[in-house]
């Protein structure tokens, strides 16, 4: 049964900060095992949307279902709600926009952290998994370094390794490719596709990079001014000839998306 459930369903999710309306009636359904790329200009609430998905922020109204379970009703102020929320979050891996690596642990410990907390593995297995994941992101030799010694792109890759360490069902990536050189970002795309193919992970990827969207996406969404301007299968969206989509994919200044 669980396979039939869509991984993520949003129903009319709204979120504002004071007068600043960030999300307005966002609804979408992402089937399990698909890759969704969410596009949108800077500051339109993409990061906020991700935070809502993992319960770091509560939407003002609307509902969010993760594999059929409603997370908007969970009250984190009560311990039962917290337990449920934590149980739910084990399905997730998340790459934060700024990495959010733990400053006081070295790279290896950062990647090992979720494994030590949740996986019943021996230290040796953990070490093997850490080495494997760091190699995947091309940081085999950085295991003993501290986050402060890394460049922005390296931090991002470590954070990606940490996000996938537990082999979660759903991986949320906030701009994995920004700050990476084209080769590295292509490698990361391959990695996402590979994980998707071999382990059937669901990905939600936030990006500014339309080439990346073309390459990896099954589903594409475009968020602008808090509203989901377009959402659907990649080919359908690209064929739909919406002006906002065209503008974004053609890197044009002409169109509905205005720089203010």
């Amino acid at each position: 049964m669980a396979e039939q459930q869509p991984a993520i369903t949003l129903e009319k999710v709204c979120k504002s900060f004071g007068p600043n309306r960030v999300l307005h009636e966002v609804s979408l359904t992402l089937p399990a095992g698909k890759i969704m790329v969410m596009l949108g200009p800077s500051g339109t609430g993409k990061s906020v949307l991700l935070r809502c998905l993992v319960g770091l922020m509560k939407p003002d109204s609307g509902r969010i279902f993760i594999e059929g379970q409603d997370i908007t009703g969970l009250d984190e102020r009560r311990s039962a709600g917290r337990e449920q929320m934590f149980a739910l979050r084990r399905k997730f891996g998340m790459l934060f926009q700024d990495g959010a690596l733990f400053d006081d642990m070295c790279v290896g410990d950062n990647v090992a952290f979720p494994l030590r907390q949740h996986a019943k593995l021996s230290e040796r297995e953990i070490a093997a998994r850490v080495a494997e994941d760091l190699e995947r992101v091309g940081l085999k030799n950085a295991q003993r370094k501290m986050p402060a010694e890394l460049s922005g792109g390296m931090r991002k890759r470590v954070a990606f390794a940490r996000a996938i360490a537990l082999r979660p069902k759903i991986v949320l990536c906030d701009e994995p490719s920004s700050g990476l050189d084209p080769v590295m970002s292509a490698t990361l795309d391959e990695l996402i596709l590979d994980l998707h193919r071999t382990l059937g992970m669901t990905f939600v990827v936030i990006s500014h990079d339309t080439a990346e969207a073309r390459k990896i996406a099954d589903y594409v969404g475009l968020l602008y001014k808090g509203e989901l301007q377009a959402f659907g299968l990649k080919d359908e969206v690209l064929r739909s000839n919406q002006r906002a989509i065209n503008q974004f994919f053609e890197r044009s200044t002409e169109g509905p998306i205005q720089v203010l």
Binding site: L56, A87, R90, F96, D103, Q117
Partner: peptide
């Protein structure tokens, strides 16, 4: 200072997402 630093660089939220209290 250490906790505040963890908060502003989203490390606390990262913990929450990893289902660690």
């Amino acid at each position: 200072a250490s906790l505040a630093n963890m908060q502003i660089s989203e490390q606390v939220e990262a913990l929450e997402v990893m289902a660690v209290d």
